[in-house]
Amino acid sequence: MRVRKRLKQTPLLQVQNISKFYGDLAACLNISLDLYPGEILAIVGESGSGKSTLLNCISGKTGINAGEVRYRSRNNGTIDVHGAKEPVRRHLARTEWGYVHQNPRDGLRGNVSAGANIGERLMGTGSRHYGEIRSQAEQWLERVEIDPCRIDHQPRTFSGGMQQRLQIARNLVSGPSLIFMDEPTGGLDVSVQAKLLDLLRNITADLGLAVVLVTHDLGVARLLAHRIMVMKRGQVVETGLTDQVLDDPHHPYTQLLVSSILV
């Protein structure tokens, strides 16, 4: 019964028929999805398919032309992401949400130490005790496998993989429920990528994070995501369980994608 009860939960995020046009071009057309707590959804497709635009529309970074995005917040009921005032959206973005950019430089402050990068969200929500902020930063560094003795070093002295892990820590420190990730393993070496994937998989499972993950790498989607959405020219052509879509693709485009993977 425990299982059934959990399934009756309302979704954390509901996207209903959203569209985004650039002139006549539909970057996203009539896209709907539900995301539940703890669920990881991968949006895959080749460059230009509209997956990053969709991520920005869902996270409220970009305006939409039609449809609705609703987020069930912890304390403030359900929020209409695009209808809400900007401060509400920005508050969500730095408390209950996270956003992991492909390039860590877009998601980190380069001129302050790793500790300050992690501590910023805490200070932004009223934390005013240096000692506590610092000890939390240390814990998160450890959590993302960065030696806490590097707490006072600037991120630019870190390797690409470390920067990406720091970016993740910076997002997670506020205890978010939903994380948006745009090609999080994009610019990394294969070995570094594997380590990061492993970390992401453990952390998302441990914290019960819901994730919307944009990637062009079907391998990343297979490892991390419960569900997958395949996009082509702004439209969703196939969606379902990750292994189902990748092992038994029905749409011609998905079949092409899957058959194009080396290995």
Binding site: H91, R94, A116
Partner: peptide, 16 residues
């Protein structure tokens, strides 16, 4: 929006 967390980042950095 009174998003002043970043201002304390500067002071944090000083102490660090």
């Amino acid at each position: 929006h009174s998003e002043y967390g970043a201002m304390h980042v500067k002071l944090y950095e000083d102490i660090a």
